[in-house]
Amino acid sequence: MTTATVPSAYPRAVGDLLPAVRELADRLGEIPSRNAIMREFKIGAPKAQAVRLALVAEPITTPDDTDTGPVSDPWEYAEPAPAITPVPVILPAVKAAEPLPQAEGDGHPPVTVEPSPLPFNRRTLATWPVVLIALPAFVAIWSGWVGLGGLTGFGVVHPLPGIADGFSINTAITLPVGVEVYAAYALRAWLSGLVPPRARRFAKWSAIGSLLVGALGQVAYHLLVAAGIQSAPWWITTLVACLPVAVLGMAAALAHLSGEGSEQ
């Protein structure tokens, strides 16, 4: 929509018409044509063309009146980015001869998971040396416990009276079988790592205690024999008599703890 302009009695100069033509360009959103200027301001073709050229020749400024340069593609005047020099990758001497992995579609090399080396040799030690070492130890321990049992009241009994009167057994053998076998069993549970933490702690201390008791029993027997004593003192007899019961309780407790869940 255009507004009627009252014609002046005197012809208007180009400089006087330029602000009005600029306002018209702002309303239209574009530079008006020569004919539009002629119709709007009732001027001739030469003056309309001169005003239009003057409007076109005006520099375009930003609202803060700062010079932004010519209006065109901003990338046309952008400075070229500096070239990126590839950094050489220095590999260790051991890996220098290996080919680099090929890049996948996203540009990244494929991820490979290498198996971690085993921290130790999985081969187990031979067991025959243990058997060879255990034979003389078994003889010494067996004779020591049986002899100590004889000095503390252990001896031949008939466990089945009225049923098998001829069947007898020397109760002194209960000492080496109970104490030493339990020590080996608890030692296995402690070092194998196959039992829950509570059972492992119990096995550790009970195994150490059983081995110490076994060593003290051997010392006591040899001291009594060396001194020519035929009957052990009462306190040694008391301790030796409690060993089968103590071993039974520890074995039952370790078996119970070994059956618990690993969360204990």
Rank of each mutant, 00 (worst) to 15 (best):
P88R: 14
E104P: 00
P88D: 13
V139A: 02
L100P: 00
V139F: 01
T112S: 05
P119V: 11
P74Y: 13
W128R: 14
P117L: 07
A93P: 10
G150R: 15
I141Y: 12
L135E: 07
P119N: 08
L148C: 12
S72H: 10
N121M: 05
L100T: 11
P92W: 08
Q102W: 03
P109K: 07
P70H: 05
E104F: 00
L132F: 00
L100E: 07
F138K: 02
Q102S: 09
D73T: 06
P136I: 10
D73P: 09
L151K: 14
T124W: 03
A81H: 00
G105P: 04
A140Y: 11
V71S: 00
Q102R: 15
V89Q: 12
G147N: 15
L135M: 12
V71T: 12
L151A: 05
V87L: 11
G107W: 04
I90L: 13
S143M: 12
A96P: 01
V146D: 10
P99R: 12
V113N: 05
V111C: 02
P119G: 13
V94K: 13
P129V: 10
P129H: 04
A96K: 00
A96Q: 01
F120H: 07
G69E: 09
R122Q: 03
P74W: 11
S116L: 13
A103M: 06
G107C: 01
K95I: 13
P119Y: 13
V89D: 00
L132G: 04
I90H: 15
E114L: 13
A126C: 02
F138V: 08
P119R: 10
W75C: 04
G144V: 06
P70E: 08
T124H: 05
I133N: 07
E79V: 06
L135D: 08
W128Y: 13
F120W: 07
S116Q: 03
E114I: 05
